[in-house]
Write a protein that binds this DNA or RNA. Structure first.
Length: 423
RNA sequence: GGAGAGGUGGGAGAGUGGCUUAAUCCACCAGUUUGCUAAACUGACGUACGGGCAACUGUACCGGGGGUUCGAAUCCCCCCCUCUCCGCCA
């Protein structure tokens, strides 16, 4: 969430930024400032009352000790009054603070100046096109037919065991998954990321920390018995490592990577979007997360974008790089680059990575801070990205590399798969 | 899951109702001394939200949440976690 003092200091700039994000409930900013004033007012009132009761309590203690019981009992009268006051001030304070947080949670992050205006994915800015789009034969198959043909991914069996969106990978299909995971992790490690293996379920606090809760609750699978959530991305557990922490600025940038399976309910999705591997309830992903000094975060974002693009080049997949427009940018992001690979048989672009800078928006919620040169605590910046999400990479690999002899594995992956062709 | 013992600052650890402003030790940081290092000594050393131009200062926080009391780290209730033993188990 936004920092209230920033709303006070940079209100006009924030309003301009929010317009780019198509957020027009500008009045809420003034309501936030009014609530914050009220919060401070009652904080002061409460503190004063508590201060008085504390000193009276001490006096009473002394009086009892010196045997002046009558005088002590006299003093107690005032403390009952103070008790009532502190109760009512405390209630107002708690309610005001809650109202303030509720409002703050309704305001999205302010986009970076480079973010173009726009309403949907059609307005995203195409920054680059890299690689040749392959010309496939007329009888080229979409990946959901190739997986059947070569018996490598079984959607029907997954359906039998669990349900739609939970495919079963078999033989070379399973091996290809494992190869991609290892390839991505090895590359990330070479690029300076520390590998972690996080829990796949998180508690409520973690869900709030990274912003899945409260509004995106329906996106996650919930284990009611234990009140835990299956992670929709490794971003959740990795970022929550640093919840309520003050990190050393000498440690910046803090780079972590993790492979995890991701679980998403994807309620409301339908049609060609969800066919085959395009959208699953359970999928594999290697995630990269960076904690960085505010002055360096955009530099780091470029580095992460370059890194992810490098993976796509090594996999010999044609891709394009997008800068998301205000309307397509997620609630919490200030700037996001999407990488889309071209899936030649479906003849469409598939998003395989999203690399974002959240600046201090997520950190404010997480209470993730560092000490600056003057020893003052400041909010850190957080960034993350997929590097990469497997299913759509697999879809593109299968479709783009199909030949009459079989599906060719890109060179960089062969040491990991142990085979050169799926046939 | 059952029984018992615990949870105090970055770490160790004292503290069973008011002399606690959480002792003490270690670590970290700054300084003094010293060829260097080390040692010794001195000082500073939490987080959050307020007040004040500032020096300063108020309040809260001893696993979390409630309660008793004029007053709670300390007493009571609920929950979480850790350890030991038992049960179960890859």
């Amino acid at each position: 969430m936004l920092v209230v003092n920033k709303i006070r200091a940079e209100k006009e700039a924030i309003i301009e930024g929010l317009k780019i994000k198509n957020f027009n409930n500008i009045d809420i900013l003034d309501e936030i400032i009014v609530l914050d004033d009220k919060r401070k007012e009652f904080q002061k009132k409460l503190d004063d009352v508590l201060s008085e009761s504390k000193s009276i309590a001490k006096e009473i203690g002394m009086l009892f000790k010196t045997g002046k019981v009558e005088e002590a009992n006299q003093k107690k009268i005032r403390t009952t009054e103070l008790k009532e006051l502190s109760k009512s001030f405390g209630e107002v304070l708690a309610n005001t603070a809650k109202e303030l947080t509720d409002k703050l949670l309704q305001v999205p992050n302010v986009p970076h100046p480079s973010v173009p205006a726009g309403n949907s994915d059609e307005d995203n800015e195409v920054l680059k096109n890299v690689g040749e789009i392959p010309e496939l034969a007329a009888d080229a198959l979409p990946h959901w037919e190739l997986t059947d043909k070569y018996d490598i991914i079984d959607f029907k069996l997954g359906n039998k065991i669990t349900g739609a969106g939970f495919p079963l990978y078999k033989g070379k299909g399973a091996r290809l998954q494992r190869a991609l995971i290892n390839f991505f992790l090895d590359e990330a490690e070479k690029a300076g990321f520390r590998e972690v293996q996080p829990p796949l379920m998180v508690n409520e606090e973690s869900g709030y920390g990274t912003g899945q809760l409260p509004d995106k609750e329906g996106q996650m699978y919930h284990v009611g018995e234990d009140n835990l959530y299956l992670i929709p991305t490794a971003e959740v557990p990795i970022t929550n490592i640093y919840r309520n922490e003050i990190v050393k600025s000498a440690d910046f940038p803090i780079r972590n990577t993790a492979y995890s399976q991701c679980f998403r309910r994807e309620a409301g999705s339908y049609g060609a979007d969800v066919r085959g591997l395009n959208r699953l309830h359970q999928f594999d992903k290697v995630e990269i997360v960076v904690i960085e000094h505010p002055e360096k975060s955009y530099e780091r974002l470029e580095e992460m974008s370059t890194y992810v693009q490098g993976l796509l080049v090594k996999l010999e997949l044609p891709y394009r790089l997008l800068r998301l427009c205000g309307g397509d940018l997620s609630f919490t992001a200030a700037l996001t680059y999407d990488m889309e690979v071209y899936s030649a048989a479906q003849k469409r672009w598939l998003e395989v990575s999203s690399v974002s800078n959240f600046v201090d928006y997520q950190a404010n919620r997480l209470k993730l801070r560092y000490k600056d040169e003057n020893g003052k605590t400041q909010l850190a910046h957080t960034l993350n990205g997929s590097a990469l999400a497997l299913p759509r990479i697999v879809a593109a690999l299968l479709e783009n590399n199909q030949t009459p002899e079989g599906i060719k594995i890109p060179k960089a992956l062969i040491p990991y798969t142990g085979f050169e062709i799926i046939n």
